[in-house]
Structure formats: C-alpha cells, structure tokens
C-alpha cells in the first residue's frame, strides 16, 4: 500500500487536476479563438459563467461535508421568479435592494429546510433534496407561471457591463469568494467540515458537532443558490421558472471536475471555480472548433467524461506500472 507521488499530490491538492485541465482548456480555447482575452470577450464569458460558478461553490461545500444538494436549481429558480415578479422592469433601486435581501433570506430558508431533513431527521441527502428540489421548482412555477417580468434594465446592464479594475465583474466576485473561503478554512468550522465529510463517525467520537455542521452546509448551499439566482436574473434580465432546472447537474459536474469528491471530505473552492470555467470554455471550444452541428453534443459530453475519468485513469496507469 505504498503511496505514489501522484496519489499523494492528488490527496494534498485535490484541485491539481482541475488546474491542469483548466490551463489546457484555456490554451486550446485561446488558440481557437484569438480574441479570448479581450476585455469584452472575457467579460461576456465570465458573466455567463458566474451564476453556475456560485452554485458550484455551494454544491462543493455540501459535497465536502459528505452530502449532495440537488435542490439548488430549484432555489435559483425561486429567486429568479421572486425578483422578476416583485421588482419588475420598472422597479426602483430600493425595491431591487430590498428583494435581493429577501432573496438571500429565502435561499437560507430553503437551505435550512434541506438541512433540517438531512441533519435532524437523518434522511438521505440525495432523496431529500431531489424531493425539495421539486417543491422549490414548483413554488417558482407558482410564483411565475408564464415566463416574463423582469428587473430594471439598469441593474442588468450593471451586471453585464461593469468591469472594476479593468477586469470582468466576476473576477471581483471570485476574489471575494476565495478570501471568505480562506477565512472559513482557517477556522474550526473549516476543520469540522472536512472531518464530517471525511469520516462522520470518527468526527462524532471526537465531539465534532456533526449535525450542526451538516445542517450548515445546506444553509450555505442555499445561500449560494440565492446568489446564483440573483446573478442569473441580472444576466437574463427576466423571469422564467425553468431557469435553474438545468443548472443543478452542471453544478455537480463542475464541482467534480474541480476535484471535489462525491464521497466527501475532499475539495475546496478553487476547484469548482476552475471547474465551472472549464465547463463553460468546453462549450466555446466545441463551438469554435467548427465541429459539425450533429456531433456537438457528443463531443462536449466526451470531453466531460474524459475530464471526470482522467484522474482515475491516471491512477490506473500508475498502478499498472508498479
């Protein structure tokens, strides 16, 4: 049972593979699309990736804690519908702020409901959040049966075109996330998170408040889903109860590409951030490579399968050699 260097590296830096993939994808994309680093293109890409990125960060935290949250898309949809129906295209800025605040509360509440079922009633995370996901999506549909509504144009434009420090807005958001994460990781809560996800029994025996930690991961995920809902609303400027439905699976894919283990206890925030961008750029690569329309979906799916399986395949080859 000797550890290979690759294994140790991967264990110490779960996002290492994500980083390698991230760099490769950026290089390929830059070759296919020479203007990739122009501010406008960069901003165009990042503003589209940001909603999923926020979702993937929340998802990753739940997964580190040993769970999974497949209700995040539903929560994002609720937030989108709340903002689109309550603020409106001609709403005031005060309303906008008020409902952003309410949205965040709603996200925390939705996450707390998940956390209650999973941490307190000890239900299976995947089944619980599958069920609550339907409830949240249904509630979004109830709020806004027909696509429509919206937020003030100025708000959408702010999201779409603001470039602080000459960089896309998303970069500032990422910086804030990374900073907060660095802080969280340096606290006891950070340690608890990894302990609970790594081996919940052992953590319990060590007097780690396991239930509380599990509960909090879902609250964080709900909050991140709310931020994601706000971002997607600002991107599209309008309401659609279906808007988050496709994002849940993508958030899990992004987290896993980012080195977050489905089994818990492994991962971070840099991983899913790179994972999301990688996932988004894959779409660009497929688009710019001039591959035939009929093969686009297959090509993209293959890249994702390879990205997900590659760390395992590398391990396999390393073991074969020994």
């Amino acid at each position: 049972m000797k550890k290979t260097t690759w294994n140790t590296l991967m264990a110490r830096h779960p996002a290492l593979f994500a980083l390698i993939l991230f760099v490769i994808i950026i290089i390929i994309n830059a070759i296919l699309q020479p203007g990739l680093f122009a501010l406008e293109t960069l901003n165009n890409n990042m503003r589209v990736f940001l909603p999923l990125l926020l979702l993937a960060v929340g998802q990753s935290i739940v997964m580190i804690g040993g769970g999974i949250d497949i209700s995040v898309g539903g929560i994002a949809s609720i937030i989108n519908c709340v903002l689109a129906t309550q603020v409106g295209l001609n709403g005031s800025m005060e309303d906008m702020w008020k409902f952003i605040f309410i949205s965040l509360l709603a996200g925390v509440l939705a996450g707390a409901i998940n956390g209650f079922f999973i941490a307190v009633l000890r239900l299976q995370p995947i089944i619980t959040t599958y069920a609550t996901g339907f409830i949240y999506a249904g509630f979004a549909l109830f709020l806004l049966p027909n696509p429509g509504g919206g937020i003030p144009r100025a708000v959408a434009d702010f999201y779409r075109t603001t470039t602080p420090f000459g960089l896309p807005l998303a970069f500032s958001v990422i910086a804030v996330i990374v900073l907060i994460w660095w802080y969280v990781r340096s606290t006891r809560f950070g340690r608890y998170l990894y302990a609970v996800g790594g081996k919940a029994d052992a953590a319990y025996q060590t007097a780690v408040p396991v239930n509380w930690v599990v509960f909090s991961t879902y609250v964080i995920s709900g909050l991140m889903a709310a931020f994601s809902g706000i971002a997607i609303t600002m991107l599209s400027g309008s309401g659609n109860a279906e808007i988050g439905s496709g994002m849940t699976l993508n958030s899990i894919t992004a987290a896993v590409i980012g080195g977050t283990a489905m089994s818990g206890g492994v991962g971070g925030v840099a991983g899913p951030i790179m994972g999301t961008i990688t996932l988004g750029l894959m779409q660009n690569i497929v688009s710019f490579s001039g591959i035939s329309t009929w093969w686009e979906t297959l090509a993209k799916a293959l890249i994702i399968v390879v990205a997900l399986a590659a760390p395992g395949i590398i391990n396999l080859f390393i073991r074969e050699k020994k």
């Binding site: 589209v48 997607i232 496709g246 988004g280 779409q283 329309t293 979906t297």
Partner: peptide, 11 residues
C-alpha cells in the same frame, strides 16, 4: 445547437 439553458443560449 445544443440542449442548453438561458445562460447557455446567451453564450
């Protein structure tokens, strides 16, 4: 042309 959501179509 691919199955995608609003964000994906914006992209």
């Amino acid at each position: 042309s691919a199955d995608t959501d609003v964000a994906g179509q914006i992209q």
